[in-house]
Design a protein around this nucleic acid. Structure first.
Lengths: 200, 200
DNA sequence: ACCTGAACACCGTTCAAGT
DNA sequence: ACCTGAACACCGTTCAAGT
């Protein structure tokens, strides 16, 4: 056989990404394979390599889509006017809720280990910067005398912290028997951090 | 061939763990395979399954050893008398230094994804609890009016936070161009958190 | 009793060969 | 030009068969 041309290259590209998302959602990163994606879209493995450089490339593109979905939800939340502390708590809740509702896909962003020499594609880095920008904007009113660098540093410290709680809790590496939910843990971190950060 | 009996079961067990550690240190979790471990200790793959339930079991035991090494270093640091804040900063530095010096093995603890229904072995959970206990002890003098639950919650929130910074920075998922080192980021989190947490 | 090694069902990736 | 499918070099895991 061969020469099917049922779909354009762009269509195959999109179908593959959507198939990969479905597989990842159900079986996680370890259950995702080129052969499974190919068979799910009705093509042979070889075809995938006409559209993606390799499996890492495909995963990176799936992760990029997940990240942009997450960003959109956070952006929508931070658009509503709120006091700074309420804004940061709302962002944190949105982040945790997204991670809880899309655990497999969200985990995949962090489970996917890059080669030592691999440089993240620019669009991916921009996504990360955009997300931090939301936190920086919410933080700025609380530190009016602080430099941009200090704000940037604080945003990364706090957000990595919330991320860490989320990650350890969802992968059950955290021992939280008798401890409140992920949200409460994250709130504890945020509230104490902001109390220390705030100028008064 | 067969019937070699060059080594006892315990010897094979230990040799396999050490071989796995060496492979993991050099090639990371993704480079670790049963076949490689077996060939490194001069046995066949089948032999490994006489000593470990499966590869997950082997990995879990390697991770347990790594965790106990990390705990010992943290324990040694917290044994020296210090003011509470200095103690927590020192613990954080020890944690980050261990992660930097043993990145592959440290990452493996968190990269290793458990099955949904898998319950962590009791010794593993104890290790985690022990580590949190060190942080709780350092935190307690700063919150004399706080309940044990509040102290436990704060320790988990702060430590997950430091872990998150460490993880994102070492896997280069964090965009820290123009930002100071991992240590500085972690210090930012800790200092602000403690300022908010402290009763005065 | 202890260990082997072949077998099974999977991988990612490539590329000559078919239409 | 487009896609296939067989090939290669790997996996984890099992288990009959050798000594």
């Amino acid at each position: 056989m061969a020469r099917r041309s049922d779909h354009t290259r762009e269509e195959i590209h999109l179908m593959a990404l959507e198939a990969a998302e479905a597989i990842a959602s159900q079986e996680g990163l370890s259950g995702l394979s080129a052969r499974k994606v190919a068979s799910k879209i009705g093509y042979t493995v070889g075809t995938l390599y006409l559209v993606f450089r390799n499996l890492d490339d495909l995963i990176l593109q799936v992760n990029d889509r997940t990240l942009s979905q997450l960003y959109q939800e956070m952006e929508r939340v931070s658009a509503k006017p709120k006091k700074p502390e309420a804004c940061i708590l709302a962002l944190s809740h949105t982040y945790i809720e997204f991670a809880s509702n899309n655990t497999a896909r969200w985990s995949m962003i962090y489970e996917h280990v890059l080669e030592d020499d691999f440089v993240l594609p620019a669009p991916f880095q921009q996504q990360v910067q955009q997300m931090f920008a939301l936190v920086e904007n919410a933080l700025r009113p609380l530190g009016k005398n602080k430099s941009d660098r200090e704000i940037a540093q604080a945003a990364r410290a706090l957000w990595s912290g919330i991320h860490g709680i989320c990650l350890l809790a969802l992968t059950r590496k955290l021992d939280i028997a008798g401890i409140d939910s992920v949200q409460d843990l994250a709130d504890t971190l945020t509230v104490n951090f902001l109390n220390g950060f705030r100028e008064n």
